[in-house]
Design a protein around this nucleic acid. Sequence first.
RNA 1: CGGGGUGUAGCGCAGGUGGCUAGCGCGCAGCGUUUGGGACGCUGAGGCCGGAGGUUCAAGUCCUCUCACCCCGACCA
Length: 568
Amino acid sequence: MRISKLFGKTQRELPAEADTISHQLLLRAGMIHQIAAGVYSYLPLAWRALRKIENIIREEMDKAGGQELMLPALQPLELWQATGRDLAFGQGLFTLSDRRERRLVLGPTHEEVITELVNSNVQSYRDLPLLLYQIQTKFRDEPRPRAGLIRVREFIMKDLYSFDTDEEGLSRSYNKMLQAYQNIYARCGLPARLVEADSGAIGGKDSHEFIVIAESGEDEVISCANCKYSANVEKAQSTKEKVAGDEPLPLEDVSTPGIATIEEVANFLKIPRSHTLKAVFYSADGRLIFVVIRGDLEVNEVKLKNVLKCSELRMATEAEVTEAGIVAGAASPIGISGIKVIADDSITTGTNFIAGANKPETHLRNVNYPRDFKVDLITDIARARAGDRCPKCGGELSSSHGIEVGHTFKLGTFISQKMGAHFIDQGDLSRPIVMGCYGIGLGRLLAAGIEQNHDDKGIIWPLAIAPYHIYLCPLYLENPQVAITAEKLYTDLEGQHLEVLFDDRKESPGVKFNDADLLGIPVRVTISPRTLEKNSVEVKWRSEKEPQLLPLEEAVLRLKELITGREN
RNA sequence: CGGGGUGUAGCGCAGGUGGCUAGCGCGCAGCGUUUGGGACGCUGAGGCCGGAGGUUCAAGUCCUCUCACCCCGACCA
C-alpha cells in the first residue's frame, strides 16, 4: 500500500477528546473516527489489524472444533422476555419497533437466538456436543461509553456457544475454550490473565475473565502474590480476620451527639472502625433492604445483587430510609422489623460491636450477633481489598487495573430450560441442553494491544496483529536512484507476500520517521543516498533502538526470513 | 441518573466587559529554497462561532431553552 493513497491521515496534535493512550494513538494514527458516543468507524489500518485479530480467533476456534455461523442482529423482544434477560439487561438493551409496532432489540449478545436455532436442529444426544460461534457486531446501550474502543455501544465480538449433554461435557467444552483463549492472547502478543469473575447479566455459574493489566482498564483485579488466586473485585473473596474476642457484655446506650458516619463514631469513641457495625440501605427492585456489615468493610454491590436475585439495585435515598422509620446516622438492625436484613459474615468476626441505637444521636455498645438481632440472610457481601488475606492460602492480596478482553461462562441449563431446548438422552429421557458461552471483544483487544505496546512516539504493533509488516521508507525521493530502488524493493517485497506500507510521499525525513513510529509498523526499511552509497538498506525494528544495514541484493530475502522467523 | 467541563476552519486553541472585514498554530493548495528525526519564505483556499428563541440599532460575546461530546461518581446514613 502506498501511503499517498492510504485513506486516513496521521495527526500531529493530541486530540482533545481522548485521554487514554490507546484512544489517543488510534486517533492520531488515523485509524478510527467517532460518529457518536461509543460508536466508531474503523479506517483501513484499524480494519486490517482487526482482521488479523479476527483471523487468529477464527483459526483457534476452528482448531477447537468450533463451527462459524452468522446470526441476526435484529431480534424479537419476545425472545428476550422468554428468558427474562430483557430485565437483566434493562436499559442496556437497544430496542426499536418495526412498522407494525413489533418490538425488536439490537442483539447485545446471542444466547437466545442461538438456543432457538439449536433447538430446532437438535433432538438427540447424538447431535451433541456442539461448538458454534459468530464474529459480528453487537449493540449495548452502555450508561457511559469511554476510553475510545475500550467501552463502546457498537462493537465486534466473537461469541462461541457450547451445547453439551451434561456438566462433564460442559467442563470439557469449557476447558477447550480456556485453552483456545490462551492461544489467542499469546498469538496476539498479549499477556492476558485468567481471573474468576461474576457472570452479571449473562447469568450462569462459573465464570472467568481474561484481563490485560493496564492503567486505563476499568476492571479491578484482586490477586494473591503467593498462590494462583486471582479474581475480579466483583467476585473476589478475602479472609475476614477476627477483630475482637472478649466475652459478650450487656448492651448499653452511648450518647453520640452530632455523630453520624462510621469514621466519626470510631474517632469519637476512640475505637477502630472494625469494632463497629455499619448499616447501609439499598433499594432492590423498589424494595428497601437493610444491610449490616463490619464498619471497616464496604459492601460489594455485585455480590449483594446476586444474593438478592434482583435486577435493579441502588442505594436507597434518605427519604426512603426515613420513611421506613429508621434514624439516619444511628441506624440499627436491633429492633427492626418489616425490612429484609442482609448481613455480611464479617459481623461474626468479633464481639461487643458499636452499632446505631435507632434513636437520634445515640449508639449502642456491646452489640452481638445473634444475641441482639436477627437477620434474614448472612453471607459474604464484602468487597475484597488490597492488603486483605487470600481466601485460599492466606497470602497478601493486591489489586490492579485491567482491561477485560475475554469472558467465559458456564451457563448451565438456565437458558435452555426457559426456552425449552431439550434433547433425548440415551435412556429416552428429555433433558435440557447444558450450555456455555465464550466472548471476546475484538476492538477492545485491539485497544488493549496498544495499551500494552506503545512508547511516547506511538504504537509498537506485535507482528501478528500489525496492519502491515514493513514500513518502506525512502528518503529524498527526488533522487532517482532512491526512487528506482524503492519502487523495485516495494514490488519485490510484495512479491514475497510481505505486507508493505510504502511511504512514497515527498516528505522530509523527520516527517516520515515520526509517522513510521506513530503507526508502529514492526519493521522500518530506510533507503537513502547514504545507504545506497554502501549498496544497502537500513532495517530497524520498531521495538528496538538500533538499526542494522542489509546489503541491497539480499534485502528482500533477509526481510522475508526476519519476518517469518518472528511470526512463529 | 447525579456532578463537573467543553462546543469557534480537518486538528489544537485564542477572542468573551456586545461594535463594523472572526484570529493564531498545525494541516491543506500553488511557487521557490531546503533535506537522516515533525525545514523555511511568499501566495492562497477554507467558518450558518453546536442548534432554537430572546434582548439590542448591533450578538461569537448577554439571557432562556435545547442538543452533542468528554471526564468523575455510581460510595455507605
